[in-house]
Computed example of a mutant assay.
Amino acid sequence: MAVSGSASDPQRRPVVVLYERIADAIHDGTYPPGSTLPSEPRLATELGVSRPALREALLLLQEDGLLTVRRGVGRTVNDQPPRRGFEQIQPLEEQLSAGGAPLRVRALLRTVEEPTDFTTQHLHAPARAELRFWESLLTGDGAAALSQEWAAADDVLERAHPAFAGALRTAGSAERISMLAVLAGASRGVPLTAHSGVTATSLGQRRGAQLDRPADTPAVLITQVVRAGDIPIMAAKHMLPTGAPALSVVQSG
């Protein structure tokens, strides 16, 4: 069975493009968990690539835990292949649901607004730019968190990836999905990176009312900026009050 793939970006290393084509085939079920990949000569022919490039891509897939080499069998797809790097940027509702009951996204507000100090700083938005703003309540098993997300202007989104602006326009009235979930879903082949800040605070009057908690309830405020390459495409504030599901924090050095 041949692996399909879109035209590659000429500025990206062929091995990286090849890695992503095979990883896509694994994640979309072309090569399901437990299946064995074709032999190197056959796979190289199907993909129209050199064997050295294919071998390097396969080694990277093994290192990342998508494939395992079995003596006498060949390369097999792992039963639970991990997500690739850019897919590991998860929407807050998915992170908070890890190991527990799924959280539901309920839209509080879906609108367009001019830049604030926060979005000017993190999205470099010029004055009078039109930025999508989504405010959502994340609920499950009595726990709740509040999420506020701003997208960069459409021309910036389209420069980062042609699919981003259209995906947000299509999902503009969706009430059960977060902005990051939409962007992550549209990011196919475009690595996303992010950085976050964590601050101890209290809910305050407005957020307390939204979460039906006292204004002085202790909370963690997470600020997040997501980039496609060097272009910031989304900025967010997430408020997790006492009693919200635990959020894992990983430090890299």
Score class of each variant (00 low, 15 high):
residue 199 T to C: 10
residue 128 R to K: 13
residue 76 T to N: 04
residue 46 E to Q: 11
residue 164 F to R: 11
residue 5 G to I: 08
residue 28 D to F: 01
residue 101 A to F: 14
residue 249 V to R: 06
residue 130 E to C: 07
residue 137 L to D: 03
residue 45 T to Y: 10
residue 204 G to Y: 07
residue 28 D to R: 15
residue 26 I to K: 01
residue 16 V to K: 05
residue 72 G to F: 01
residue 41 P to W: 09
residue 142 G to T: 10
residue 128 R to P: 06
residue 168 L to C: 14
residue 197 G to D: 14
residue 11 Q to S: 15
residue 172 G to H: 15
residue 120 T to R: 15
residue 194 A to V: 02
residue 164 F to T: 12
residue 170 T to A: 08
residue 217 T to I: 02
residue 160 A to F: 04
residue 252 S to K: 08
residue 23 A to K: 07
residue 148 Q to V: 14
residue 166 G to W: 00
residue 227 R to S: 15
residue 148 Q to Y: 11
residue 1 M to D: 12
residue 158 E to A: 11
residue 140 G to M: 07
residue 69 V to Q: 06
residue 236 A to K: 02
residue 115 P to C: 13
residue 77 V to L: 00
residue 238 H to D: 06
residue 230 D to K: 12
residue 80 Q to P: 07
residue 224 Q to H: 04
residue 48 G to S: 08
residue 121 Q to T: 15
residue 137 L to H: 01
residue 25 A to S: 05
residue 96 L to P: 00
residue 153 A to K: 02
residue 25 A to E: 00
residue 200 A to T: 09
residue 94 E to K: 10
residue 217 T to V: 07
residue 249 V to L: 08
residue 125 A to Q: 12
residue 29 G to Y: 00
residue 4 S to G: 08
residue 31 Y to A: 10
residue 214 P to H: 06
residue 153 A to Y: 01
residue 35 S to V: 02
residue 20 E to K: 05
residue 31 Y to R: 05
residue 217 T to G: 04
residue 178 S to F: 14
residue 33 P to T: 02
residue 236 A to N: 00
residue 133 F to R: 10
residue 26 I to D: 05
residue 230 D to E: 13
residue 207 R to W: 15
residue 79 D to P: 03
residue 26 I to P: 03
residue 171 A to F: 03
residue 135 E to Y: 11
residue 161 H to E: 09
residue 222 I to F: 08
residue 2 A to G: 07
residue 97 S to F: 06
residue 6 S to D: 09
residue 71 R to G: 05
residue 92 L to C: 11
residue 174 A to S: 13
residue 41 P to D: 04
residue 54 L to A: 02
residue 137 L to V: 11
